[in-house]
């Protein structure tokens, strides 16, 4: 008889592993990827490919040659970072911007902290914010490249709804006037990807499909996205009720910008979100609040990236002080 395997219990393992989870995230992102390819054509494909390949390549080379340890590229986490970053860039961004962003995301935000699981900030967002402050013109150029099969180019306006509103208010218009001037800014069009924006945020519906997939596969729990969306809705609603001419309405705020992309795919990043449910609620509420405040009072039209990064920094504290409830109560 052959030698038996001996180990402590448990002797079986669930089906989950890191690679499977990352693959599920990629699958969940695929509707958004498809929509961006439909509207932005080759340039979207180019961005996604450059992002995925650069991130994976950077991780492999850093682990192999600098850290000299076994490479963990096969867990697909670097690919997810690359795709997320690509979906966060304006579709017209040149490939080298994507390349630099990917290097920053993996090299600076992930590997310097020790790789997967050690980083404090979401790598894709660090990459995006780095690009946003380094190449502000490219990063806010929402001109629309040629779509695949001549996808409805005309319907896509050249600016994001948020920036239109921001500029409009700066030039002294009220929200109603801005919306009246831009008939494209209806909820229906936002749901079905007819507004300008980064590759991944143009279609709310595609993102919601991904969200549902992640929930079914139990990759994420609904807590964080639900609390973020709820907070954005409530906080922007309060402002809107106080002064509808200066502040946009809550539904507008939910459907525009990276709120959906950020709350479903970025804020739920395992590594940079709290462990306990109570911590997750505080974290998500913080993101929602900061997003609305930055949108309404900050100089950037969009606040999601900054809000998530700021709340990422609080995660170690939240993990320390927001403990899960223990069975049998505290001592």
């Amino acid at each position: 008889m052959r030698n038996l395997i001996i180990s402590p219990s448990p002797h079986i393992h669930g089906r989950e592993n890191t690679r499977r989870i990352m693959a599920d995230v990629l699958i969940a992102l695929s509707p958004a990827m498809l929509v961006s390819v439909w509207f932005f054509g080759l340039s979207a494909i180019k961005l996604i490919l450059v992002g995925a390949v650069t991130c994976a390549g950077a991780e492999y080379l850093i682990q192999k040659h600098i850290l000299r340890r076994e490479s963990s590229v096969s867990d697909l986490s670097a690919v997810v970072t690359g795709v997320l970053l690509a979906l966060n860039l304006p579709p017209s961004a040149p490939w080298w911007v994507m390349f630099i962003g990917a290097l920053i995301a993996i090299g600076v935000a992930k590997m310097t902290f020790g790789g997967l699981g050690q980083n404090i900030f979401n790598p894709a967002l660090v990459g995006r914010v780095f690009l946003l402050v380094s190449f502000p013109v490219i990063m806010t150029d929402w001109s629309v490249p040629q779509g695949l099969f001549g996808g409805s180019v005309d319907a896509l306006s050249g600016a994001t709804p948020l920036s239109m509103v921001k500029e409009g208010i700066a030039s002294g218009l009220t929200v109603e006037q801005i919306l009246a001037q831009n008939p494209d800014l209806s909820y229906g069009q936002m749901l079905f990807a007819r507004v300008g924006g980064s590759a991944g945020e143009v279609s709310a519906l595609a993102l919601i499909a991904g969200f549902i997939y992640l929930l079914i596969r139990r990759v994420i729990k609904p807590t964080i996205p639900a609390v973020i969306l709820g907070t954005v809705f409530v906080v922007s609603g309060i402002f809107w009720l106080s002064d509808a001419s200066r502040f946009t309405d809550p539904v507008f705020n939910l459907l525009t910008g990276g709120v959906l992309l950020g709350s479903v795919f970025m804020a739920t990043d395992y590594v940079t979100s709290p462990m306990s449910t109570s911590g997750q609620i505080v974290y998500a509420a913080g993101i929602g609040l900061l997003t609305v405040l930055i949108r309404f009072f900050g100089s950037y039209p969009e606040g999601m990236s900054f809000a998530i990064l700021i709340m990422n920094a609080t995660v170690p504290l939240l993990n320390k002080y927001m403990r899960p409830k223990r069975f049998g109560g505290n001592k």
Binding site: T18, S77, G115, G117, M275, P324, F327
Partner: peptide, 25 residues
């Protein structure tokens, strides 16, 4: 069925916290 998988970095997914019936971390 039983061989343990190779362990890799903790991805801080919090699944162990959710699974613990005693509310530990």
């Amino acid at each position: 069925q039983t061989r343990r998988m190779k362990s890799s970095n903790c991805i801080r997914c919090g699944k162990c916290v959710d699974a613990c019936p005693m509310g530990l971390e």
